[in-house]
């Protein structure tokens, strides 16, 4: 049974409790990126975080990943206070993160090798994943020999092979052209739908500045205010049925209605962020 609402009574995977984060700028001043954010995300949910550029979306994700420590407040992962890196999560960055000196197979197998698996076992499992993302003929290619879309597929395989229950994604497809992007989104949903070992779905936190992408993918869209001191200004449940056909979805009435509703909130934040950028230029 494919459900869209049932995760409300699932256990909490991630919890932010009044989290703030300050950066020190190069001229010694304090810049508050995220201000007093509280948020809980149920296990198995696909949550998208949208907001204008520079609004602290990535900071929020880095806090969840444990790459940054909150200045105040706490992050809890599956009920435990976070200490160091979040070992329950993988993180797909906006930038290219494949190691250029490793071929596709070694890149996909990397997390398993780091965990101490033998090279033979790690490669065998990597080959499964390379096949799942359709890159078997390219297993011995280096990243520089692949297209942008192929590199993203490899990165997905590198992350998802680890079977971690949480997946953090920071505008992973923003560098791709529209068509490749839609293809990757479809593949992402297919992977997510299968879940870990075919049973439980992973918890996905997906950061994007593209509202269409957020609605198309997520169960819930969270809108952040313009920076500095970003807060959550709105949370919208997306009750579009799954599986979703991303090629058709964007023109359905339900989608357009949701888009209008969320955009009415987001629009104001985008205008604010542009005004403050203009003031700096």
């Amino acid at each position: 049974m494919r459900q869209t609402q049932g995760f409300m009574n699932r256990p909490i995977a991630l919890e932010l409790d009044r989290v703030s984060h300050d950066f020190r700028t190069s001229d010694g001043r304090v810049y508050r990126a995220v201000d007093d954010v509280s948020l809980s995300i149920s296990a198995g949910a696909f949550v998208a975080i949208v907001g204008p550029s520079g609004c602290g979306k990535s900071t929020l994700l880095n806090l969840i990943a444990g790459l940054l420590m909150p200045t105040s407040g706490r992050v809890r992962v599956e009920g435990h206070d976070q200490q160091g890196l979040n070992r329950r999560a993988t993180y797909m960055f906006q930038q290219e993160t494949l190691l250029p000196w490793k071929d596709v197979r070694d890149n996909v197998a990397l997390g398993l090798i780091l965990a101490g698996l033998s090279k033979a076992d790690a490669h065998a499992r990597a080959d499964d994943w390379i096949a799942r993302v359709g890159l078997t003929p390219f297993a011995s290619h280096y990243p520089s020999q692949l297209s942008g879309g192929m590199r993203k597929r490899v990165t997905m395989a590198q992350n998802w092979i680890l079977d971690r229950p949480q997946v953090l994604m920071d505008e992973p497809f923003s560098a791709l052209d529209v068509h490749t992007r839609q293809l990757m989104e479809t593949e992402l949903l297919a992977l997510w739908d299968v879940g870990v070992a075919g049973t439980t779905r992973r918890t996905v936190v997906f950061v994007t500045h593209d509202l269409e992408e957020a609605i198309a993918l997520a169960d819930e869209v969270i809108v952040l205010s313009a920076g500095p001191a970003s807060r959550i200004v709105a949370r919208h449940a997306v009750s579009l049925p799954r599986p979703r056909d991303l090629r058709e979805l964007r023109t359905t009435d339900a989608f357009v209605e949701l888009y209008r509703a969320i955009w009415s909130v987001l629009r104001g934040e985008v205008i604010k962020s542009q005004a403050s950028v203009g003031a700096h230029v």
């Binding site: 790459l67 993988t90 190691l99």
Partner: peptide, 11 residues
Amino acid sequence: ALVNNVRMLGA
């Protein structure tokens, strides 16, 4: 980004 990614992968 490479360093952070490899750390997240468990290095």
